[in-house]
Design a protein around this nucleic acid. Structure first.
Lengths: 227, 227
DNA sequence: ACCTGAACACCGTTCAAGT
DNA sequence: ACCTGAACACCGTTCAAGT
């Protein structure tokens, strides 16, 4: 006599899987345990099923990560202001997403996000460059350059996948190593680095990021696509 | 009576391990089987030992990859010409290294190469920007921007680690997906992308790379570090 | 069509024990 | 000090079998 009376008390009626649910659960895991923990096996476990079940909805782990990233990109939005201020703010909010989930930036470089939210971001950035009066061929190539810069910067600040869970989630450690290497440069082997180590290390990340975007826009606006 | 006569025929007298030898063997594996095959276990096997032995010389897999990358950067060299031509050629030869061993570029973004050869590359790029008459604070920040661009571009063209060994080693596939997404953009949702899809996709990788470097240098040269 | 248990073929890293 | 076998704690993906 299975399931008498139309309800059973043993299980809370497991709903059917769906890509949306899988993505939502994966984001929860990334948020609480980090990207490296969001494995097919771990996600399947959270969904109370076996890893094989996920392959009905995604072809592989990369595709799952891509779906997650597009979902997160949905949160990016420009604040009001002139075109340059809006550009800085869309790129800034994209950077925030990538910095919040370090490791996803690494994926984003290779994944080339192409979901609906990513496309909207692409469209916003292109629109802002055109609004700034930049020639269309330059603006078109510039979009890639700007998004690549933000993505790469976030990826740099994310640490490689760690075995040790307790350690800080840094990438700041890598920065310290670089700092040490530049400060310790041999004036004979590396004269320029040795002479200008402090200039190389100057500025806060925010200052450097803002400068980089201004410099990129400046270069994009003034450099003809035909040499 | 072990080892009579001072020589034995059973084994070719296994030499002692060394970081140099480990790196050399790892490069061989990367060259023939790809980075994703160059695991601690696979490298140890090639060295006819167990994986634990490698941990005497490197702290983890990332450190092994970093040592390999620095070794490979040793091959970069500028060709003669004015400072801009030399800049394009050093960056080009660095790009060649990263494109030849796709996947190492992905590591390079996070690893922040700091070995002797990487430092030399850093020094060359900084020297060339200064030779071009660029203000030292801008040149110093610009080095990062230029190397980051090259590294990120190479990383983009490398595919994610694949289970399937027979498939093309592309990343070109990702580009095709992007192409399709841009061409198929909805004119209402993404008006700018839809209107300028061809401009977004225009140019060969080489043309875009050369333009990007000119644009970066232009932006670096003309953008004050203080807004 | 969707879902699953179990298996296949791997990983990085640690550790106690040897030389 | 250097090296090692064996183990610990995982992976992604596939496949035959079920519903």
């Amino acid at each position: 006599m299975p399931n008498p009376g139309g309800s059973r008390r043993d299980r809370p009626a497991k709903p059917a899987l769906s890509l949306q649910w899988i993505v939502a659960e994966t984001i929860k895991i990334i948020r609480t345990e980090g990207l490296e923990r969001a494995t097919m096996r771990r996600v399947a476990q959270a969904l109370d099923t076996g890893p094989a079940s996920l392959y009905v909805y995604v072809a592989n782990t990369a595709e799952l990560h891509a779906a997650v990233l597009d979902e997160l990109i949905g949160a990016t939005e420009p604040e009001p202001g002139d075109w340059m201020a809006r550009l800085q703010s869309v790129l800034g909010s994209y950077a925030d997403v990538l910095f919040t989930y370090p490791g996803l930036a690494r994926s984003a470089l290779v994944l080339r996000p192409t979901g609906p939210h990513a496309l909207r971001l692409y469209d916003q950035v292109l629109g802002l460059l055109l609004e700034g009066g930049i020639a269309v061929e330059r603006a078109a190539w510039g979009v890639d350059l700007l998004l690549q810069h933000v993505t790469a910067t976030a990826a740099e600040h994310s640490a490689p996948a760690r075995a040790d869970v307790d350690a800080p989630p840094d990438g700041a450690a890598q920065m310290d190593v670089l700092r040490g290497a530049l400060r310790g440069a041999d004036p004979v082997e590396n004269p320029h680095v040795a002479a200008h180590a402090e200039a190389l290390l100057a500025g806060t990340p925010a200052q450097r990021q803002a400068w980089a975007i201004r410099a990129l826009v400046q270069g994009i606006a003034t450099t003809p696509t035909q040499s």
